[in-house]
């Protein structure tokens, strides 16, 4: 009770500080003239309500066979340049005294046989991608508002505003972003926004032969991903950074960062 009160006070103070900061920022931003009415979005015109969804992604590493189909599908679906990855697969080979991690070409061509110099007791694959963090550092640091989060929870890049400074690439703790050498813009996974808005699954989910990758909608009550997040043991990558990732992993090993 007493400690609750205290916590509340601290939170209030934090909120106040945040608001004070915002206020200063606002004062600094001169007095911006604001558009009268927010225009209807193009996506909404085709009968898609972007405020009716809140997407989340669920990954079960224990099922992954490391075939790399997702990486290939992503590359083709999104025209990802060679040597860069919107999604990739990592292999962990772990023993009592040592561990080994690899991801040759992001797992694009599958994985070769491997011999490690220690007694491996477990090994597994972990698919990685943008976590579409709810409190994303990449979005925070974009100086021009070219990185943004849609109402459904996708973190996207506006390729007509991005100045290619690379600050977001540095700020992402997961290595999910890169500078596209063709567009000279920051590039990243969109959770296949162009597919999802048309009622399709993201390409990586579509092609996964093992059901490792699942895409779900937290606003749907019977959604299997929502159910799994609510009832099973899930974790996120680098939780200590408090980025609130929206890619959830089932039974993640501690070696995975």
């Amino acid at each position: 009770m007493d400690s609750d009160q205290k916590l509340k006070e601290i939170l209030d103070r934090r909120e106040f500080l945040g608001q004070a900061l915002l206020l200063t920022g606002g004062a600094v931003a001169f007095l911006l003239p604001h558009g009268a009415e927010a225009a209807e979005l193009d996506v909404e015109k085709e009968g898609y309500d972007w405020s009716a969804h809140r997407y989340a992604y669920l990954i079960d590493p224990s099922l992954c066979i490391g075939c790399g189909s997702c990486v290939r599908a992503c590359k083709r679906e999104n025209n990802v340049p060679d040597g860069f990855f919107r999604t990739w697969v990592e292999r962990y080979v772990v023993g009592g005294e040592s561990s080994h991690v690899d991801s040759p070409n992001g797992g694009l061509d599958g994985f070769p046989p491997l011999s490690v110099g220690f007694n491996a007791t477990k090994s597994f694959f972990v698919p990685k991608m943008c976590n579409h963090c709810a409190s994303s550092p990449c979005m925070q640091v974009c100086p021009v508002g070219a990185s943004f989060r849609t109402k459904e929870g996708m973190v996207l890049v506006d390729e007509k505003r991005c100045i290619g400074c690379g600050y977001c690439v540095q700020a992402c703790p997961y290595g999910s972003r890169f500078l596209n050498e063709e567009t000279k813009c920051a590039d990243k996974c969109t959770w296949c926004y162009h597919r999802v808005t048309k009622g399709m699954k993201p390409a990586c989910v579509e092609v996964c032969p093992r059901g490792v990758r699942q895409f779900g909608d937290l606003k749907r009550e019977d959604d299997p991903v929502r159910k799994a997040i609510e009832t099973r043991f899930v974790s996120v990558l680098q939780p200590h950074l408090l980025t609130e990732p929206q890619c959830y992993y089932l039974n993640l090993d501690r070696e995975v960062r």
């Binding site: 193009d42 996506v43 508002g145 990185s147 943004f148 996207l156 506006d158 007509k160 505003r161 162009h194």
Partner: peptide, 14 residues
Amino acid sequence: DYGPYRAAAVGEIA
């Protein structure tokens, strides 16, 4: 319109 970004970009990406 919806935050510090260009709302038209949403439709372009979709």
